[in-house]
Computed example of a mutant assay.
Amino acid sequence: MAKVSEVKKIAKDKFKPTIEEYGFKFFGNGLTAYRKKNDIYQFITLNVWNAGNRLRSSIGCWVPEMQPDYDMNQFPKSLLPSCSGGGLTDEGVSHGTPVSDSQDISKVELVEEALEQQLKLIESFALPFFEEISSRELLAKYDEKWFKDSFESMLEHEGSKHFNTYEEFQSAILGRT
């Protein structure tokens, strides 16, 4: 089983520099990188899970208006809980990424190969996804059901001081508040 610290150490040599070449910045000592493009924050996160036996990437797009109470002074130290995107699989971007769509890192020797596979998935699917979601309008249209579910969940769990309807929420995403 690979420890997160071992994955970070191995990622430092090739994975991180390659992601940085695409304009992403890693922050803290974590495995999450972001960039801002066309007024949209784009994220790539390496996830070590299943007791350190599996590795996968997740990606997301976010605009601050999605969470009006988020303190941008904390960005990126305090990460955002919800983005539009999903996990990377051999098929593309998926909202529900099963364990079978992650790489085995049950031994440290497997980490480098798993990171190379994650880079291929990022280059094949994440970067084109980010290009496709190139405006607030396209972000709002991408998976409208997800946005609606996100808004309804926000209302159910914490209420909203800012929005009374999904349409108001969507207008905020579009920057029309």
Rank of each mutant, 00 (worst) to 15 (best):
V4Q: 15
S5D: 12
K8V: 07
I10E: 04
A11Q: 05
K12M: 05
K14R: 10
F15Q: 07
T18Y: 14
T18M: 15
Y22K: 12
F24L: 08
F24Q: 06
K25D: 14
N29F: 10
L31A: 09
K37D: 08
N38I: 02
I40S: 01
N47F: 14
V48Q: 08
V48Y: 08
A51F: 12
R54E: 08
L55F: 05
S57F: 01
W62Q: 03
Q67S: 09
D69W: 06
Y70K: 03
D71K: 10
F75P: 06
K77T: 11
L80V: 13
S82T: 14
S84E: 11
G87W: 00
D90G: 14
G92E: 02
S94H: 12
S94G: 06
H95A: 08
G96Q: 13
T97L: 15
T97N: 15
V99M: 13
V99I: 14
S100F: 10
Q103D: 15
D104H: 02
S106Q: 10
E109H: 02
E109S: 11
E109I: 07
V111P: 07
E112K: 03
E116R: 14
Q117S: 13
L119P: 01
L121P: 01
F125Q: 07
P128F: 10
F130G: 03
F130A: 08
E131T: 06
E131Y: 03
I133T: 00
R136N: 00
E137H: 05
E137M: 07
L138W: 10
L139S: 06
A140R: 02
K141R: 11
K141W: 08
Y142E: 06
Y142P: 03
D143P: 06
K145G: 12
F147S: 06
K148L: 10
D149R: 12
F151V: 01
S153P: 02
S153I: 09
M154G: 11
L155C: 14
L155P: 11
H157V: 11
E158S: 08
G159K: 13
G159M: 12
S160W: 00
K161I: 05
H162L: 04
N164W: 10
S171L: 06
S171D: 07
A172E: 03
A172L: 04
